[in-house]
Design a protein around this nucleic acid. Sequence first.
DNA 1: CATTATCTGGAACGAGGAGTCAACAAAGCC
DNA 2: GGCTTTGTTGACTCCTCGTTCCAGATAATG
Lengths: 177, 177
Amino acid sequence: MEAFRAKGYEGTSVQDLVAATGVGRGSLYAAFGSKEGLYLAAMDRYREKHALPLIGILRAGAPARELIREVLLGTVDVIAQDGSRRACLIVGAAMERISHDPTVAAHVRATTTSLEDALYEVIVEARSKGELPAGRSPRDLARYLIATLHGLRVLGAINPDRASLTAVAEVALDALG
Amino acid sequence: MEAFRAKGYEGTSVQDLVAATGVGRGSLYAAFGSKEGLYLAAMDRYREKHALPLIGILRAGAPARELIREVLLGTVDVIAQDGSRRACLIVGAAMERISHDPTVAAHVRATTTSLEDALYEVIVEARSKGELPAGRSPRDLARYLIATLHGLRVLGAINPDRASLTAVAEVALDALG
DNA sequence: CATTATCTGGAACGAGGAGTCAACAAAGCC
DNA sequence: GGCTTTGTTGACTCCTCGTTCCAGATAATG
């Protein structure tokens, strides 16, 4: 997973993967079938380690704006720690692989959709409690927040400066109304 | 440029570039020195064709919010027309190449910075005319809009649906205050 | 402990990668 | 129109790619 994050799919050779895992070539193929299989497994692991925790935050039940701020700032944190050395596997896959590999496309869509749905539910509930003003549709707001997360990833790859990224996240929250 | 947009840097072979340009291998090397040289030239061309027109819009002198809306919706337009077949060269470079190639990093930063500066100036001027309320710093707002543009590109790669993208762009405008 | 079944990892394969080069064609110059 | 210069070409080299395979190590079983 780390190898793919650092070099992308095409840029990572099987030799790189052997070195990164410490596992022999044949074993890798026995376990995953192909380079693509290993890539898909890496995406699953990425989802577990990075997307599911965000969804967990959203299910914690605090005021919506705080939950969403936590998700955005948590992402800023991860980006600022990594520097630009390791990209987001999902955004990387979206840019590099999605038009060539339907299976990768399905994984990317599944991961982003699950996060989008969690955001959607938080927003709907907050609206019903009057925590957030009525305005844009919850679905559009959820998608907007997904776009913001992706935007932060790209911005962070270009310039992983914590202060800038934090400021951008705060501005993004203003759009919730 | 189109070849790199469709397949990324590592995914595009020199043979692909020969086919895409109709120019022989040797000539390509004589003109650009290396695959990387051709990539940098493609980035320059991408900047001319896609970033400079956006800057041109921002210098047109209309009300700030209208100019910024035009930039966002214009980007949505490009994405919706392309589908996800051709990615943004800048975002692709940011994800795939920026940590491995300082020259590419410089090109990416130069392109995004010039757009960010144009946004910044529009915002500062609008503030001075009272078109936009005081609030977040103009620099943060400009960076936020850059992040939004990147977010739209990634969102569009995953799901190039014009209606969703347009809605996201409209939500993003709300953050201007 | 012997035997079987499973797993490991480096050598080997064909394919295709980036980059080079000498022969050839086109264009510019007197 | 020769002569030089510049540009083009595609076959060629060497290398690395993803994948396969098999001899040997390891683990499991009775």
